[in-house]
Design a protein around this nucleic acid. Structure first.
Lengths: 135, 135
DNA sequence: GTCACTGTATTAGTTGACTGATACAGTGGC
DNA sequence: GCCACTGTATCAGTCAACTAATACAGTGAC
């Protein structure tokens, strides 16, 4: 599996799991309808309690990134989250503001902020290139 | 004072304080060398324990946003943080990645991501307009 | 229906984050 | 030196987050 836990990171295990899956989905490394490893299987792989994996999956389900079918398994959601556009932009704005406030306080120039943004955006959108634009 | 605590936010008080001061500094609402309210004063204003304010100030000092002089007071730092440029870009990259992963998973288009970025960046840089570029 | 797999629920222990009370220590105007 | 202000240190209580052990419940191939 593509997930690895960093015990020294200070971040809760279930957050690390959720975060990495979320990133994989965003980058297209995990495709819609693709099954995720079972709660138990992933728990064994990562040497953690099944409940911890379940907790990560639960959070992702609430966010709409994945969905579960009792007894059957867990799968990547087909489409984006059910949320008003205004709400989605509000969430994004908040996160971007946090990032940029940090960047400005670190003394980075406007140009550096823009460059970094472009670089990160490109990296994320690359894996989705095949058919995201015209969809 | 410009700080207000939202008890329902779930965020620790000292984080809320630190965050708002950090944002104020980034946006130029707090100028370099400007004194901050004393630990005790702000504690009274916000109706929290002085230690809680001190904790926020400590974090901000560690990050280099402010500095303190025992017995004298607390002030906004003159310049950006002491950190290698590589390190600073790493921090920014991490935060931007988090924001953009979220945005992509929310189903926002590349254009929407770029627009939101521009809007947020403009808002932050506005207060600093007088003399940041040529400095 | 059975078996081997799915996710779910309950309960509980540990740990550390968070906040606060209180006492200590430095600074500077008078 | 004194006083009124600064920030600092110590200690302790509360509470919730996090993880785990264990038992429950749905699914589907056979």
């Amino acid at each position: 599996m593509f997930i690895n836990i960093d015990p020294s990171s200070g971040l809760p295990i279930y957050i690390q799991i959720a975060q990495q899956i979320k990133t994989a989905v965003a980058m297209g490394r995990l495709q819609p309808e693709e099954p995720l490893p079972s709660v138990r299987q992933l728990a064994v792989d990562l040497a953690v309690n099944p409940n911890t994996v379940a907790r990560a999956y639960l959070d992702l389900e609430i966010e709409g990134v994945i969905y579960k079918r009792q007894g059957a398994g867990t799968f990547v959601s087909g489409q984006g989250v059910e949320m008003s556009k205004a709400e989605r932009r509000r969430v994004l704005t908040e996160l971007l503001e946090k990032a940029l406030v940090e960047g400005v306080n670190l003394g980075l120039s406007e140009q550096e902020l823009r460059e970094t943004f472009d670089r990160v955006l490109d990296k994320i959108l690359l894996g989705r290139a095949p058919e995201p634009v015209g969809k």
